[in-house]
């Protein structure tokens, strides 16, 4: 509003500018059209597919070099006895040896145990949390707080929990001990409890992911169904099991599959916390593979183990993609 006085003083200037602008535009308009686009361009051909292939090429080339090429190398390596020096062909020996390798089989069993424990706790806690957060006034702040652990490097999280679990000065250890759950031995030192320790760290870091995915699913629960059910006299509990949970199911399936594959992918925190010990109590398969390949540098043997791990992951991936492509309940 303060500008009005200054404007009114120079109103003639404004008018003249406007006039000039119009004159200019008339001038442009008056120019023959051919002068603007003096050289008419050729129309784009109807199916210029090759153009898209050029755009795609660099990314595909990079990806081929860092994923496809190594994959063939992996297969070749798995047929050789490779260590630091070089390789010699030994046929399928690396694979046949796996069947008698107790630690390889234990690795799979431990991986299954670890994943099931992690996922059970994460889904249980995560969904409960999502239901409560969804009906809270402070949803936005709660979600922000919950996102925090996911931003931390898993290796740093492992170190932090190593500190908290410590038998002489760890706060977490002190709390567990004071509550009478643990005696004076550290949770990481005993083969019976070490698995729970690494599960807890994973639960601490990744439960919020399940919560947030479930929260997105809760927003999609159709309101009319809830209302209809309530008009029929359903209790909130019944509402949850009859309507909310079935609607949540497709989203939860994605969450579970993603976390399941992440359990295969990331072993950073386990390497830092226990390194697979004590004994082999937490040596889940990826940790065992890490040990074989990068501690003892038995790369050929490692390649055979890696291939079994990859095949399982690819099968899981197929499942995941199929779930992705299914239309999800409500509007996506």
């Amino acid at each position: 509003m303060t500008d009005v006085s200054s404007l009114s003083g120079s109103s003639r200037d404004v008018a003249s500018q406007l006039f000039r602008a119009r004159a200019h535009s008339v001038e442009v308009e008056a120019r023959p059209r051919a002068e603007i686009t003096h050289k008419p361009r050729k129309f784009n051909p109807p199916m210029p597919k090759y153009y898209y292939y050029y755009l795609m090429a660099p990314a595909i080339a990079i990806l081929a070099f860092i994923s496809l090429y190594p994959f063939f190398w992996l297969i070749i390596m798995s047929l050789q006895d490779v260590d630091i020096g070089g390789g010699e062909w030994i046929g399928l020996k690396n694979y046949t040896k796996l069947f008698t390798d107790a630690r390889f089989i234990d690795g799979w069993i431990l991986l299954a145990q670890y994943s099931i424990m992690c996922l059970g706790l994460q889904v249980g806690l995560g969904v409960t949390l999502a239901v409560v957060v969804n009906s809270s006034k402070y949803e936005k702040y709660l979600v922000t707080a919950l996102l925090m652990p996911m931003m931390m490097a898993p290796a740093v999280a492992g170190l932090l929990w190593l500190f908290l679990y410590n038998g002489t000065f760890g706060w977490y250890h002190w709390v567990l001990q004071s509550a009478g759950i643990l005696d004076s031995a550290s949770i990481l030192a005993s083969a019976d409890t070490a698995m729970y320790a690494i599960v807890l760290v994973d639960v601490w870091q990744w439960t919020p992911l399940i919560t947030i995915i479930a929260l997105a699913g809760l927003k999609r629960v159709p309101r009319d169904q809830l209302e209809a059910n309530m008009v029929d006299g359903a209790s909130p509990m019944r509402n949850f099991f009859a309507i909310i949970l079935p609607n949540l199911y497709p989203v939860l399936l994605i969450a579970v599959l993603l976390r399941f594959m992440d359990n295969f992918r990331f072993i950073d925190s386990i390497l830092v916390l226990t390194g697979g010990g004590p004994g082999s109590a937490t040596k889940i398969l990826p940790v065992y593979l890490f040990e074989v390949a990068f501690k003892f540098f038995k790369l050929g043997r490692g390649a055979a183990i890696a291939l079994t791990l990859l095949i399982v992951t690819i099968l899981l991936g197929k499942l995941l993609v199929r779930v992705f492509e299914k239309p999800q309940g409500g509007k996506g």
Binding site: L63, S67, L74, A303, G317
Partner: peptide, 20 residues
């Protein structure tokens, strides 16, 4: 599918040939 499975592959498994 190739693209997404590259993303999902376990890091340790990818690292064995990549290291070589």
């Amino acid at each position: 599918f190739w693209i997404i499975s590259t993303r999902m592959a376990p890091v340790v498994a990818v690292m064995v040939p990549l290291y070589a």
